[in-house]
Design a protein around this nucleic acid. Structure first.
Length: 892
DNA sequence: TGTTAGTCAATATT
DNA sequence: AATATTGACTAACA
């Protein structure tokens, strides 16, 4: 191509040259023409001259003169010669022109020829390119087919682990069935073979030959190897590591001993080992390598099931969260890993091989969420010491099946957290499929699990006990613990009330909260659970002797877990949070349901959102854009959606409100004494021991001056160094942690503020501009920081819902502006107009926000991932605008 | 170690 | 009493 191009260029130059010459010739033609004209004029002149001569001759003849005719003759000769010369010149020029014309024609034809040939070449090349593309596509398809194949492999693996049972590969057992043998024996039996296969295999395979290396292209989808090979290959960690080491060996060996490497004995040995099919070793090779794939799948599962790295690391890998993050984010290639380094990947692969593992972990995670950490800031309620000893005991008891002891140790500190009936059902039935995303269950049980030295999964491989027995015994303990609590509780319980509650649960909490999409099997399951456990009534507030009032605030809300479908939905479906919250707000307002009832639990121990009133308020007033929410953060919105979809929702909440009132009144009447005790700030433990008087922790309240100072500091430096924080703290006489917290909170809240205002700005733009939601992206960044002080004039709004939302947005903005203005006025003492003040505050916030963003950008620039990370962060802002605005404009 | 996201729960406001 | 605000705290993560 390049040659052609060059040639073309050359030709073009030549053509130009010729053109120039032609032009020159044309110039000559001009000369010739001029000469011709001159000639003509001369001829004319001559003729005239002749006539004149004639006349003059006559005259002369008449009056005589003899010199003139001689003069004329000379002139004629002159003209004649000139004429001849010119004619000759003209002929030459004409010939030249003709020749040049010919040349040009020739060149032109050759040029067209060349152009044609070039085009042909281009076409040819394009065809080649196309065929390459086709090939690529084919390969891609093959690859895809391969992926499918991987999946089949995995499934077979699962099948194998289920069917072959633990007898063959006890170490990798994911099966919940417990073996009869003692754990210790297994332990020793098991570890041995693994080790030997790790090391021994490599050594014993030294004579392996590279001649068995299969053809590259031979391994395609269509050539599915026999089942036995799939099984062999997808088997257990030892298998793959063995094959890997042999592979690795093949390379180094052939390099070191080229003379030996082709020996047929080695070949047959390999074949004996891996089977006759030459592809088998290739399969192995492929299997070993894919640490990245394993990591990817694990990440996917963790994401999908909302399992944290910490939990995963603790239970499955025995690694810290940081290590897990490292491994998942940057898995080393298999051949760079040491034997020890490979272990996590074996574990992960095993983890992936059985869905039960994932589900179990998910349920554990669900429990830990609400349990591990007591958010109740009751100082000294559980010292590390007591906690630990309890856990130790729990551990021991777990193995010894001494449930009663467990229970007693549990109940000592179970004064604050009682499992709801739903938890009990779920755990009792072992139906963890629907997973408790929400914080469920007993704090203590959750934490006891978290401190077990081995995860269920690890026990599984190390002691040859499957995870289920552990979970079972754990479950049983809990179950029995619940029983005891229950019996105690029922004594103090109003029987009628209890009866009502029990009978209501199946209808209201099972049916009612269910999304239409939930499967009937699930429903059946739940119903049957309820039937199985009619005595598992909820623990009502007045029931526990210890905690009538504590429960009110301390019991964690339990919600019907989201079904897997709902789960999927909230993972992947885009939700317009502004619109959604708007609808929720309207519905609540219309029906007089307060945020508290909507968000918090109702001791059924159930709630729509399972959040405190404050959180609900925040959520409704400042919904975050969907794409900015984490999986966890999306949950409340999904629950809201579910609630909105429910035709019976309002009725249900009203009922709850009613019941709540009754319960509340009842308690007021029946437990005045306890209240008195509690009011004095003393809490009574489960067994009557008195705790240290609880000093109610009062909240730090920053004065307006302090806030102002902090704000100013923020504008200077949104991310102050520890030194600066310390300085600030000293200046303001605050705790450093308070200052730190303030900065965290302020940053976080200012970010959220931007979203709402940006939405408002855009909705303004829409209403005043076009109807459709097609705004130019280029406009957005500006709009993001363009606070709407100037655009207060409302345009013509056709859509009523649009108007409503716009109004709501504006109201919220105005409200906050006014607040900000008031605050400023109060402290600055400047008697400025409120408009000025608000504008000032806006400016300040704008600046502050910009500062923060700039800071983050700067910070990002220093990192490797600067581009990916923060660049899209700022894009985020515009994306938010689009979302927010399109939600406003596109919606019906 | 430090950041963000998500909350809680004490206070403030309405 | 219902809501809004906000200092503090945990979990997740890099």
């Amino acid at each position: 191509m390049r040659d052609v191009e060059a040639e073309n260029q050359k030709l073009r130059e030549r053509l130009q040259e010729y053109d120039r010459e032609v032009a020159e010739v044309k110039g000559h033609e001009e000369t010739i023409k001029a000469l011709r004209e001159k000639l003509e004029s001369y001829e004319h002149l001559i003729q005239c001259g002749t006539n004149d001569e004639d006349e003059e001759e006559e005259r002369n003849a008449n009056c005589a003169g003899k010199e003139r005719p001689h003069e004329n003759e000379a002139m004629m000769v002159d003209v004649e010669t000139a004429n001849q010369a010119l004619e000759a010149e003209l002929a030459v020029k004409q010939r030249e022109v003709e020749r040049l014309m010919e040349d040009v024609q020739k060149l032109q034809s050759s040029l067209t020829e060349l152009t044609n040939s070039t085009a042909n070449q281009i076409r040819e090349l394009q065809q080649q390119l196309d065929s390459k593309h086709a090939l690529l596509q084919e390969l891609e398809e093959k690859l895809e087919a391969q992926a499918d194949y991987e999946e089949i492999k995995r499934e077979l693996n699962v099948l194998r682990s289920m069917e072959l049972g633990s007898s063959e590969h006890p170490a990798e057992q994911g099966s919940p069935r417990r073996q009869e043998d003692s754990g210790q024996d297994r332990d020793s039996v098991q570890k041995q073979p693994i080790n030997s296969s790790f090391t021994g295999s490599a050594e014993s395979r030294l004579p392996a030959s590279p001649s068995t290396t299969p053809p590259r292209s031979g391994h395609t989808h269509s050539q599915t190897p026999p089942l036995s090979q799939i099984l062999l290959k997808s088997k257990a960690p030892p298998e793959s590591s063995r094959s890997f080491s042999s592979d690795l060996f093949r390379h180094s060996f052939s390099a070191a001993f080229p003379s030996l490497s082709g020996k047929s004995s080695a070949n047959s040995f390999l074949q004996r080992t891996f089977g006759q099919n030459p592809y088998s070793s290739d399969l192995h090779t492929e299997e070993e390598v894919d640490t990245a794939e394993i990591a990817r799948q694990v990440k996917e599962q963790l994401m999908k099931h909302n399992i944290g790295q910490r939990v995963f690391g603790h239970y499955v890998l025995g690694l810290s969260q940081g290590s897990v993050s490292e491994i998942l984010a940057r898995p080393k290639p298999w051949n760079k890993l040491t034997v020890r380094g490979k272990e996590p990947f074996h574990k992960m692969r095993h983890f992936l091989s059985d869905e039960q593992n994932i589900l179990t972990l998910r349920s554990i995670q669900g429990r830990q969420r609400g349990n591990i950490t007591s958010r109740v800031r009751a100082p000294e309620s559980s010292s590390d010491e007591s906690h630990k000893s309890i856990l130790d005991q729990t551990k021991r008891d777990l193995q010894g099946h001494k449930f009663e002891r467990v229970h007693s140790s549990l109940s000592v500190s179970s004064d604050d957290n009682l499992p709801s009936v739903l938890d009990v059902q779920q755990v009792a039935s072992g139906s963890m499929m629907t997973s408790d995303l929400s914080s469920l269950g007993s704090k203590l049980l959750g934490s006891s699990i978290s401190v077990l030295p081995y995860s269920p999964l690890e026990l599984n491989s190390a002691k040859n006990t499957s995870c289920s027995p552990v979970m079972d015994s754990w479950r049983e303990q809990w179950w029995s613990a619940i029983h005891c609590e229950q019996r105690k509780d029922t004594h103090t319980q109003d029987d009628t009330e209890l009866g009502n509650m029990v009978s209501e649960i199946p209808v209201s909490s099972q049916d009612y909260w269910k999304d239409q999409s939930s499967t009937s099997s699930e429903q059946n399951l739940q119903v049957s659970n309820t039937n199985e456990t009619p005595h598992s009534s909820p623990l009502l507030p007045s029931s526990s002797s210890s905690s009538s009032s504590l429960q009110t605030k301390q019991t964690k809300a339990a919600m019907t877990p989201l079904t897997s479908e709902q789960y999927e939905r909230f993972m992947y479906q885009e939700v317009d949070t502004v619109e959604l919250t708007q609808q929720v707000k309207e519905k609540l307002a219309k029906n007089g349901i307060c945020q508290k009832v909507f968000g918090e639990k109702h001791l059924f121990g159930e709630a729509v959102l399972g959040l405190t009133q404050g959180s609900v308020s925040d959520l409704l007033a400042r919904p975050k854009p969907w794409h900015r929410l984490s999986v966890k953060g999306r949950e409340p919105y999904v629950r809201m959606q579910r609630w909105l979809n429910d035709t019976n929702n309002i009725h249900k909440l009203r009922e709850i409100k009613h019941t709540e009132k009754k319960v509340y009144l009842k308690r007021r009447v029946s437990s005045v004494c306890e209240d008195a005790v509690l009011d004095s700030g003393v809490c009574v433990g489960e067994f009557g021991q008195e705790c240290v008087p609880q000093v109610k922790k009062s909240r730090v309240v920053l004065s307006a001056q302090e806030k102002e100072a902090l704000r100013k500091a923020y504008e200077e430096k949104p991310y102050p160094s520890p030194g600066t924080i310390e300085e600030l703290a000293q200046q303001l006489r605050l705790k450093a942690s308070t200052v730190t917290n303030w900065f965290h909170n302020y940053r976080s809240r200012i970010r959220r503020g931007v979203f709402m205002e940006a939405a408002a700005v855009k909705s303004d733009g829409v209403s005043e501009g076009q109807t459709s939601g097609t705004q130019e992206r280029a406009e957005l960044p500006d709009a993001t920081f363009n606070f709407p002080e100037s655009s207060a004039a409302p345009g013509i709004l056709r859509d009523s819902s649009l108007r409503r939302r716009k109004a709501a947005n504006l109201n919220s903005i105005i409200h906050r502006l006014e607040k900000a203005a008031n605050r400023d006025e109060a402290h600055d003492g400047e008697a400025c107009e409120s408009q000025d003040a608000s504008a000032d505050s806006l400016r300040r916030r704008k600046a502050a926000n910009l500062n923060s963003i700039i800071h983050r950008l700067e910070k990002a620039a220093n990192r490797d991932e600067a581009h990916d990370g923060e660049a899209c962060e700022s894009q985020d802002a515009s994306a938010e605008c689009v979302n927010a605005s399109s939600s406003v404009s596109v919606d019906n």
